[in-house]
Design a protein around this nucleic acid. Sequence first.
DNA 1: AAGTGGTCTAGACCACACC
DNA 2: GTGTGGTCTAGACCACTTC
Lengths: 242, 242
Amino acid sequence: MGTTQLESVPEPKYWHLKTVLSDALDSEFAVGEILPNERDLAARFGVARATLRQALEQLELEGRLQRRRGVGTTVAPPRMGVAVGDAGHVWPGAATDSWQAVDGVEAAPPAAVARLLGTGAEESVHTVRRIRRTHGQAVAAELLYVPAASVPGLAAIDAPGGAARARAVLRELQRLQLEGQERSVELGSARADDAKQLDRLPGSPVLVVTTRYSAGGGTAAVAVATYRADTCRLTFDGLLAG
Amino acid sequence: MGTTQLESVPEPKYWHLKTVLSDALDSEFAVGEILPNERDLAARFGVARATLRQALEQLELEGRLQRRRGVGTTVAPPRMGVAVGDAGHVWPGAATDSWQAVDGVEAAPPAAVARLLGTGAEESVHTVRRIRRTHGQAVAAELLYVPAASVPGLAAIDAPGGAARARAVLRELQRLQLEGQERSVELGSARADDAKQLDRLPGSPVLVVTTRYSAGGGTAAVAVATYRADTCRLTFDGLLAG
DNA sequence: AAGTGGTCTAGACCACACC
DNA sequence: GTGTGGTCTAGACCACTTC
């Protein structure tokens, strides 16, 4: 008894640091501005560099900061909204979308995708790689899996591979009657190849959007799109009357 | 010249460690099984504990592991799919939904929410806190903001606050004609209060789902739901014919 | 060459769960 | 009390960008 209520819970240093930095970002820094380097910041707050980094990591996760090796830490602009909702309920590759076909090959999909497609474990499917750009920046990398049965007209084309073949697959898809699509969103970490295309380090947090396209009573295609979690806010369009 | 192609890129230790552990999880561990503790694991792989922890953090981010202080690290079950799509296009609080009202107060919303609502900066609104449980586990915490103008019948009720008042607000909402809803999903880190209700540490990664409900030509309510990113996969229902 | 963030180490102590 | 994961330190070196 007698002790006045002051101790409270020992809030972690990095947590307190994060709130202090967050307030400073709001009041004292402009978007794009460069922060002092990590060693200076750590010294200024009287903590080890690792602790300071823990706070910066959180702020980067929340999209408040952007860190680039060899360059520095800058104040990030607000996240951009990117529409993943069904703008018009169309197949991937419609003329209006913001994706760019990069490559197309034939290969066996990951087990999880094969399960969604309902194909055999080792059965190879058309695999199209696309990139989505918004305001000049790459925001998402996608792998689209299309079983040969979904695009019967494609055999005649026989493009060698590469972007031309990718476009051919997308073109054939448009012929089908799209009956529905199911989507899911979850947190993931960027694989090495995706990270490279998104200009991020491997392992950086991404939002993985998996879409199952239905046609002819079955699954005609599956898309796995990897969005940069630091810069993107996924938007789903109004679902009733607008 | 002359040097054979062997050096390659120096892959970070924690990254390599992560893939090794990931493979081991697939082949040698069952869901729910407890892993050796971090000090033992680090010694076994010949790395510092901090490096081992970096690999574990990634695996936890991907939903492969679950770590609990004082207990240990266990193999996580596959993420559960939780529907955030518009199951029936209904107001929050409909009889069918899986949310539980916890508290209701009147307070000024955060600036970002006030902007969505179109209310004044300091204008207070009904604020309902709800929790969503699936399979007995808390998967999401939500704050629902409802301007007084949206629920004109509420003044007569004048519940004191708490769960009863929260339910009253939800009940009044059902009277309105829902015209549409817009949703967005982004990555965030759990605030202290949300973390507590979700049985996570503050700062753990969450998926923030913001929904704007339209009625009467304006915004009738805004919901900010915080989902555990480690255990949840958000699903959006089929949008055309099923 | 200089400066930045990214990785890694080998310790220490703390908060929490369980016995 | 014992054992677990969580926090923190004070260094070191590496990879990358820029000048």
